[in-house]
């Protein structure tokens, strides 16, 4: 099954380049593109993409606001992968906070970019786990209230959340905790449900912001 992608960037050269690069992958289809955040909302409503590749700085509604709006419409679809020129911490964290599932650099190798898109679509691990975790840890305004701030997690679920926040994928967590992948998947789903998080990235933000990671 092919992944449906929406490209959002105010530079037509970036869009046309990305389109050619991504369409050369057999399992990716670019279903639309947009030059501003507002246009992206319209095109997303028409084309129902799986993943939106979102630029951050754009005229007429930037990527952060557009992401927030997309998530408010439907927390499950589409997922947003933020594309950035530079690792500008502040913008990146704000877009994750707004609901983006991950970010990738525009300059990254095309294979890495394609990989990031697939990871975001699957949702079984973080994109750029180390970078993402460091970013969240550095920016999340930790209220340091300890696990109490989170809804009651079972011991296993807390273990799983800690490893998710550590950037481990489901498969790695399974190895670490001597569980089957199916069990890990169940635990992760239940953690996401309890935290009201739409994906792992949001769960990691919640874990840091609640002070769970400091406990």
């Amino acid at each position: 099954m092919s992944l449906r992608l929406l490209l959002v960037d105010d530079d037509v050269l970036v869009r046309s380049g990305l389109r050619v690069i991504l369409e050369s992958e057999p399992d990716l289809t670019v279903v639309g593109d947009a030059g501003t955040g507002r246009e992206a909302l319209d095109v997303a409503a028409q084309t129902d993409p799986d993943v939106v590749l979102m630029d951050v700085r754009m005229p007429d509604m930037d990527g952060i606001a557009a992401t927030r709006e997309l998530v408010a419409r439907d927390p499950q679809r589409p997922r947003v992968l933020v594309l950035t020129t530079f690792e500008d911490d502040d913008y990146l964290f704000r877009s994750l906070q707004a609901g983006a599932s991950g970010f990738a650099l525009k300059r990254s190798d095309p294979d890495e970019l394609v990989d990031a898109i697939r990871v975001v679509a699957r949702g079984t691990s973080l994109v750029l786990p180390d970078l993402t975790r460091r970013l969240i840890a550095a920016h999340a305004p930790s209220r340091a209230r300890g696990p109490a701030a989170l809804p009651t997690l079972t011991g296993r679920e807390a273990d799983v959340l800690r490893l998710v926040a550590g950037g481990l994928s489901n498969a790695e967590i399974a190895t670490e905790l001597f569980l089957s992948r199916e069990t890990v998947k169940t635990h992760v789903s239940s953690v996401l449900l309890k935290l009201g998080a739409r994906d792992r990235t949001q769960a990691v933000i919640a874990a840091y912001e609640s002070g769970f990671m400091n406990a």
């Binding site: 050269l13 970036v14 380049g17 050619v20 690069i21 020129t85 300059r107």
Partner: peptide, 20 residues
Amino acid sequence: HALTASLLQASAARRTLTPA
């Protein structure tokens, strides 16, 4: 910005010349 756009265009151009 200019370098990013150039990079993506170059990357895309290479793919159109040696398509998969």
